[in-house]
Write a protein that binds this DNA or RNA. Structure first.
Lengths: 185, 185
DNA sequence: TAACCTAATTAGCTTTTGTTAATTTATTTC
DNA sequence: GAAATAAATTAACAAAAGCTAATTAGGTTA
């Protein structure tokens, strides 16, 4: 789905407005407290977004992969600052498109507006599936589904980030993994 | 935000295409397994969406209130059937707009396309806040935030629906409530 | 109003998770 | 490659949640 979106963006020659950007593994891509009004496309690599809690813990909310688009919704939709921090988990090659420019250009361009719509729809469908997982499944099932949907995650993302993504602590995820491997026998 | 959207829809005389519908409290508004390609606006009342588990349990995923729009994303975005069931929790007065018609009309109409975009953006922001709650907060905090954001929910929605909405069992929610009231003293 | 039905609470017990700290395993860095 | 650092696992205990069933409270209906 993201791929189709990327095709559309290429066809509309949007890429001429895109800047290429490299972020090395473990580097912060977007720091806290910004109004980051850009849409990014990940050509290669993995990103995560997280919040810092009062006790200084990091809680990972999203992962974004090669072939996916991303943005900080409250920034581009509401012009608000965000406490989200985006960090590269692998060396990343990104395309960035300025959102204000995109908005301006789409103001009188149905095709472009439709692309924006498609972009948001994809994110919404993903978000809803995630919510359904929290309501319908227990942590164990959320972990299993994540692994089966994205097997490479095991090699590409540290468990501690996966843990908070599915809503548990790293210690608890470790126990879940142990339970699952012992059940397999 | 929804209100602004509704204003826009009125200004564009979209309401002439809308059908009014009444659903009585406890009645099923949208049954399981449909491709329900409509957008609805709740003039009055409360709706919930839920899934049936293999054991026949009902898991409430969403609430929708007066002044809010709703739709089944997988139906309107992907033309897929949905296992979501929508039920009225109070007597509801709804406006329904046919999505295929909306899509057709917006195909060459930037303003309308922009309204669709706004509609999806609102839903996405809500969804992300919900996800953040599941990752950052424990059930107790999710319950407190829900109550403070929507105090009337206590009188308008049964606790058992609130329970699965925040991701716990009714028994557990009852204990959470007890803990909270005893802490207040 | 009484009888009925459903929701909410409580209780008792099991399972899972959180927390803290120690230990082992991987990974990075010099 | 060895030392240093960080991640993952394990352990021990406390807190919370799930589950089942019984009880109480609220509402609905005849």
């Amino acid at each position: 789905m993201s791929e189709r979106l990327f095709e559309n963006i290429k066809n509309l020659q949007l890429l001429q407005f895109a800047k290429q950007k490299h972020v090395s593994a473990s580097e912060i891509y977007i720091p806290q407290g910004k109004i980051y009004k850009k849409i990014f496309f990940i050509k290669k690599g993995t990103l995560r977004s997280y919040y810092l809690t009062e006790t200084g813990e990091e809680k990972t909310i999203f992962f974004r992969w090669d072939g996916q688009f991303g943005a900080i919704p409250e920034c581009i939709f509401d012009n608000q600052t965000s406490n989200q921090i985006w960090q590269a988990l692998e060396d990343c090659e990104l395309f960035e498109i300025d959102f204000d420019l995109l908005e301006e250009m789409s103001e009188n361009n149905v095709k472009l507006m439709k692309i924006r719509l498609g972009f948001v729809q994809v994110m919404l469908l993903e978000a809803i599936q995630r919510i359904e997982g929290f309501v319908l499944d227990k942590p164990e099932a959320r972990y299993q589904k994540l692994i089966s949907q994205k097997p490479e995650i095991n090699n590409r993302v540290a468990d501690k980030y996966i843990a908070s993504y599915i809503g548990v602590t790293p210690v608890s995820l470790s126990r879940i993994r142990k339970r699952l491997t012992s059940q397999k026998k």
